[in-house]
């Protein structure tokens, strides 16, 4: 939670698609909320679940992982592996009281600047409505 009570969102963006998508959003002047702190990673499959859990441990309200659309992975299958890991982790975290909604996985390509902005805006809105994490 940031000081002004707006949600703190951590975004892990794959270098090849989603980060380029975020870049596209910037260059095409698509506005999106400043709540997201972006980490560029080589591939969504590189996002070790440890990183996500660590974000929540350190007080993040929400985490977004965005990568190439299935089938488009720069490393052929990184996002397929990631998809399985995140699906399982999301259920576990939900069971431990971190609502499913707080951990979002999206496939965003390099050309989808507009969609990136939309995803971040919607996600931030949703998190604002959900409110800060109450425990932990």
């Amino acid at each position: 939670m940031s000081e002004d009570n707006s949600p703190l969102v951590i975004g892990f963006l794959c270098n090849w698609c989603s980060y380029a998508g975020a870049d596209m959003a910037g260059t095409s002047r698509q506005a999106y909320p400043p709540n997201i702190r972006i980490m560029r990673v080589p591939c969504s499959g590189r996002v070790d679940p440890l990183l996500i859990v660590k974000c929540f441990e350190e007080g993040a309200d929400a985490v977004l992982v965005a990568g190439c659309h299935p089938g488009d992975c720069h490393y052929t299958e990184g996002n397929y592996h990631g998809r399985r890991r995140f699906a399982l982790l999301r259920d576990l975290l939900d069971f431990m009281g971190i609502e499913k909604e707080r951990f979002r996985i999206e496939w965003i390509s390099a050309s989808e600047g507009k969609r990136f902005a939309k995803v971040v805006s919607e996600f931030t809105d949703e998190m604002t409505k959900l409110g800060p994490r109450k425990v932990g």
Binding site: D94, F95, G97, V135, G136
Partner: peptide, 18 residues
């Protein structure tokens, strides 16, 4: 047992594990 836990609110679940 898992289903029972799932009936609790997110806040209660978080408190439980905390």
């Amino acid at each position: 047992d898992v289903a029972e836990m799932a009936t609790k609110t997110a806040e209660d679940r978080a408190t439980f594990w905390r």
